[in-house]
Amino acid sequence: MEPGVDQNISRRSFLNNLLGIGVVGWLGSVLFPIFEYLKVPPQSEAEPTSVVAAKFKDLKPNHSVVFKFGSAPAILLNGPDGKMRAFSGVCTHLQCTVQYRPDMQKIWCACHNGMYDLNGRNIAGPPPKPLQEYKVVVKGDDVIVSKA
């Protein structure tokens, strides 16, 4: 055997080894994202824009629920009369989140004691404007809120 041929062979196997390492590295860079992708993220499901705000049977009259609607909170309330209404949950005064006060039967902002009636109209305290009203549809057991 000539030394040249031997050299050739060792060069070839060196190249093959390098290629092998390269392929493994490349496979890693492709498979890593895929495996990571398949890992379930902490919040395991896409949140719909809270269109289904509540279950009908869970929301008793004279109760309410605050939910995320788009990028802002909204409030769904089942009035003492059993009528469902939904409003923007952002107080028109200084953008605090409002809540429903069953004892007063009013929507109430804790920040400055602003009050809205069951139709979202500002009736006491500093809020300058009524709350924006949303459309409420009850479909089966789902209470669906949408921008009117």
């Binding site: 990571e36 992708y37 398949l38 919040q43 896409a46 949140e47 719909p48 269109v51 289904v52």
Partner: peptide, 30 residues
Amino acid sequence: LLLMYYQPGAQTAFESVRFIVVKVKFGWLI
């Protein structure tokens, strides 16, 4: 891979794509 998270439907389609892109690791890449 996208099928793993995508949910068709007016209330979920956009949100699930957004979920893939924002929440799922490497979802933006896929």
